[in-house]
Design a protein around this nucleic acid. Structure first.
Lengths: 151, 151
DNA sequence: CGCTATTATTTTGATATCAAACTATATGCC
DNA sequence: GGCATATAGTTTGATATCAAAATAATAGCG
């Protein structure tokens, strides 16, 4: 691998860590996409259903933040799920700006059926690492992610 | 955070590591996108220029693999760079199916001007971790990524 | 109360990406 | 040589996403 740019040791260390982080992440995203596709869901749709399963009824803006999607994007994702009868949208409560999204019985059956398999799949994929290694990875990623949020 | 699904400890450990991995990765992608945009480049265009800087002239298929993009996608990314005079495409060598992509002088000036800043930025972002932590993160991600490639 | 600013969502227009169909070239086998 | 198959890249059509503009509801303040 010929290289025209030579950085400092700090730079090459960081870049090298970064590239492996991004690669692993893309591999997991691809895997997730395959799993979702098997249920005729996009990765984003899967994410919304999963979030609703774990959080219960949630307003759209909050879903957008949790899933790191723009508000506009989330509108269309949720609209698609609603068309398929997997979620319900209602403006309820005193503040009519908020749209509460909740799973329908059909949506809950779907995601509750898929999620355990997903969890097993991820656990299997992570067997490449020992339990302490997984915890350490989590810690490092969390620290890194935290530090990026502000600037 | 109320949860309706309770997995095994293995599953929650792996899922928890995964979510932090994906979050960190998305934060870096967003940061990279901002850096590229400052030079009026998309993240993919930046990736192509960077790859060419480090690898030298490379055929399109290889770029697609390195950057984890589809062949069709790469055609349009490279076409955009060619329109702006940053890269050159030529069918050369005995096998006329291959298109060799190389930086023009203008393209090389651009990416060579940007890359050192990028490297410093990444190094700064990684200062949230110590050097051994960065190496460990790299090792863990690499191991994990490797294990996902086949199945 | 009425005006202004803020917040939540939706719509719109542009871009990026992919998968699949298509073209051109190369290779293997008879 | 001539046909079948494989490989590299391009084109096309569909989908996903975002940013910004538009809409709707609320809150604050005089």
């Amino acid at each position: 691998m010929p290289t025209k740019y030579r950085g400092t040791p700090d730079e090459t260390r960081a870049l090298s860590a970064l590239i492996n982080l991004l690669r692993a992440s893309e591999a997991f995203n691809a895997s997730l996409q395959r799993e979702a596709a098997a249920a005729e869901l996009s990765a984003s749709q899967f994410g919304v259903l999963e979030a609703l399963l774990h959080l219960g009824p949630t307003c759209q803006g909050e879903l957008a933040v949790k899933l790191l999607r723009s508000g506009g994007s989330l509108t269309s994702v949720v609209a698609g799920l609603e068309r398929r009868g997997l979620v319900e949208r209602r403006r309820e409560g005193s503040d009519k700006r908020y749209v509460t999204v909740r799973l329908t019985a059909k949506g809950e059956r779907l995601i509750a059926g898929i999620f355990p398999t997903h969890a097993r799949t991820v656990a299997r994929q992570f067997r490449a690492l020992t339990a302490p290694e997984q915890d350490e990875l989590r810690r490092l990623c969390r620290k890194l992610g935290r530090s990026l949020e502000p600037g």
